[in-house]
Every structure is written in C-alpha cells, then in structure tokens.
Design a protein around this nucleic acid. Structure first.
Length: 271
DNA sequence: ACTGGCACCTGGGCGC
DNA sequence: TGCGCCCAGGTGCCAG
C-alpha cells in the first residue's frame, strides 16, 4: 500500500537511473489499469528524453523533453523498479520503459488500482483541486484549523481528504493522530487551533520520518524487489488493535472502522 | 457545499 | 489439502 513516503522513496530511487536517459522502447503487456493505458502512451514516450522526476501527492511525474509528462500512480499494490531485459517479466509486470542505457523501468501492480497517463502541458485534471503538500510550508496548523471550521466529519477523515491535504493515507493518518494525542473520531470543527498546530507537526514528522527510513531501507532499487519500506518503521498504532499502547503501556488500543477503514487509537492518550 | 458510500482488483489469511 | 469467504485500501465518482 504505497503511501506518500513510498512514492517519494521510489522517485528518489529511480531518479538517478532515468534522468537524462532516452526512452528507446515501451512495452505494455496489460493496459487494464485503473484507467486503460491509451495507445498514445507509447507514442508519447518513445524516443523522448527524460528531463526530471517530480512528485505531486502520490503521483510520480516524469517530465520529457517533448513537453509531455508521464504520470504514474501506484494505487494499492503498485511498485516501480529498475532492472534489465535479462530479467524476464513476471506476473503483473504490466509495463516496461526501456532506456538507452539498457536499463528499464518496470511497473508491477497485481491489483491494477494504479494508473499510467501521459499528458502534454502544465497539468492534468487529476492534479487540479488537490490540497497542499503536507511537507510544504503551505501546510500549517493554522491552515488546518481554518479549513476545519465547517467540517462536521471526523478529524481522521478530514486529514485524509486530498482536497484538504494530499498524501495522508490510512496508516499515517492513524499514526499522526496518535502522535498528536487526538481521538480520530472527534468532529474536525470541534478541535482547537492549538491542537491543529500539533496535528500538522505530527503529520509532517510521521511522513518525513517514513521517507527517511524508506531512504535507508529502500536504497537498492536495482535488482531489489521494489517493496515499500514502512514495515521497517515502528508503527505505534496501525495494525496493533488490542495490543497495549506504547505510550501509556496500560490501555489496550481500540480498533474501530471509519468509512470502512481501520482506525486504531488509545482511549487514554487520545482525547 | 458537504458527506457517505461504492467500485475497482488480487493475494493472503482464515475457518471449516 | 483445498475450497471459499472476507478483507486490505487510494481515490474518483455518484447519490443524497
């Protein structure tokens, strides 16, 4: 389940291998991603030179010298890694982007919730109306507080709303709320500015830490399995329902469901 | 404008 | 051992 840190780690992993490279071939084995890969995808990529990689929310963006941009989402189960044609494609290896160096970027996605697009120009409809990047200076407790005033929904759902802030998935939403000591089911508009300041800082800290950890555990994108690295990170609450809280060491973590997603929190430490 | 709920998909874990 | 059920979850989209 790639969250923002995994996408950023992936970007950093592939960047040195793809930037400056010419794309000499594109092999699409299965077009049935979340949105079918269109025929112009190969046409746009072929023979173009990769200028740079970027990330917006959980979208990985690859700018080409032709003015086009490749947009990749890893969905729930997607991964990207560098390899060579010597390694035969395995099940669910849907796309190869072959580079002049002989290396290739291989897209793997069993559930096919991910997507690959190519657009020409500045932006794409899917990138519009997105909230600020959580690690940017635009994202502050003040901002969260202002946005929350008319929101009666639970604070966890509020921070997972991409129109409010991008890149906060279920795992890190749970972790950030624990770190900030806020109950996930509290209405967003009933939380003070002071506590939103703590929450914004927690979101930044949790994501930044995961990127750092990912950077150390996922250094090898060549020949590695390309798997996400948050398992290496010690999660405080996610996946620990029924276990004792690591902070108070007394209360057993409570697990509930919010919009059919698992929410785990400590009834003593989170209010 | 805001909210809740659904669909998409496969692998893995579980109970029987 | 094997079968079948259920679940995980990002996010675009729809209905209320």
């Amino acid at each position: 389940m790639p969250e923002l840190p995994e996408v950023e780690t992936t970007r950093r992993g592939i960047a040195p291998h793809v930037e400056g490279q010419r794309i000499v071939n594109v092999i699409v084995r299965d077009r049935r991603l979340r949105w079918p890969i269109t025929q112009d995808f190969e046409r746009h990529l072929s023979q173009a030179i990769i200028i740079q990689t970027r990330r917006r929310a959980k979208y990985l963006l690859i700018d080409l010298d032709s003015g086009a941009t490749v947009m990749i989402h890893l969905g729930m189960s997607g991964s990207l890694r560098m390899t060579t044609a010597n390694e035969l494609p395995r099940k669910h290896d849907h796309v190869d982007v072959v580079l002049e160096s002989g290396m290739l970027l291989r897209y793997h996605d069993p559930r096919r919730f991910g997507s690959m697009h190519c657009f020409v120009g500045q932006s794409h409809a899917l990138l519009e109306h997105l909230g600020p990047e959580p690690l940017s200076a635009d994202f502050t407790g003040e901002y969260l507080f202002q946005q929350s005033r008319k929101r009666g929904s639970a604070v966890k759902l509020f921070i997972m709303d991409a129109k409010i802030v991008v890149g906060v998935g279920n795992i890190y939403a749970n972790e950030a709320l624990f770190m900030a000591g806020i109950r996930p089911d509290r209405p967003a508009n009933g939380i003070s500015k002071k506590r939103y300041m703590a929450l914004a800082e927690s979101i930044k800290a949790v994501l930044a830490n995961a990127i750092e950890v990912g950077g150390t555990t996922l250094r090898d994108f060549v020949g590695g399995d390309g798997k996400a690295g948050y398992f290496a990170q010690s999660l405080q609450v996610y996946g620990r329902g029924g276990d004792r809280c690591k902070r108070c060491k007394v209360t057993r973590l409570r697990e509930i469901r919010q919009s059919s997603r698992a929410t785990v929190y400590c009834t003593r430490c989170q209010r």
